[in-house]
Amino acid sequence: MARWEPNASRRLAEAALELFTERGYESTTVLDIAKRAGLAKSTFFRHFQDKREVLFGEDPLTEHLTTAIAAAPAGADPLEAVVSGFDALGRNVFTPAHRTFAVRRRAVIDAHPDLQEREALKGMNLTASITRAIAHRGAPALMARVTAELGTLALKIAYERWSDLDNTDEFSAVARQALSEVQAAVLSTRKTT
Rank of each mutant, 00 (worst) to 15 (best):
G151K: 04
L31H: 13
M124T: 12
D32P: 04
A81C: 06
L121D: 15
L142I: 10
P113G: 02
R52L: 01
E160P: 03
F44M: 12
P96N: 06
F56G: 01
V108H: 00
A74C: 01
L89G: 07
L79H: 08
E119S: 05
T66A: 08
H136R: 13
A135R: 14
A107Q: 07
P78T: 07
L89I: 14
G151H: 02
A70Y: 03
A68Y: 04
F56K: 00
I69Q: 02
P113C: 00
V146D: 03
F86I: 07
M124A: 15
L65G: 06
R118E: 00
H136Y: 07
R145V: 08
D87C: 05
A37T: 10
A34Q: 07
A76P: 08
E63D: 13
L142H: 14
P140H: 10
F48V: 13
A158C: 11
R99K: 13
L121C: 10
T29D: 11
H64E: 13
N125H: 14
T67Y: 03
E53W: 01
G90S: 12
L121W: 10
L39V: 10
L65H: 07
Y159I: 12
L39M: 12
G38D: 02
A70N: 07
T29E: 10
A120G: 08
E58H: 14
P96I: 04
L153M: 14
E63P: 07
N92F: 09
K41G: 11
A111T: 01
R36C: 04
A102G: 12
A40T: 15
K122F: 03
H64P: 06
F101E: 04
R118Q: 04
T127H: 04
R106S: 01
R118K: 08
D77R: 12
L153H: 10
F86W: 09
G85Q: 00
V30Q: 13
L39S: 05
E160H: 13
H47L: 08
I33Y: 00
Q49T: 15
A74H: 06
V54F: 08
G85C: 02
R36I: 05
K41I: 11
F94I: 03
R105M: 11
R106P: 00
H98N: 11
G38V: 01
G38F: 00
R145I: 05
L61Y: 15
A76G: 03
T66I: 12
I109L: 03
A158Y: 07
T67N: 10
R161W: 07
P96D: 03
F86Q: 08
T62W: 00
I157A: 12
G57L: 13
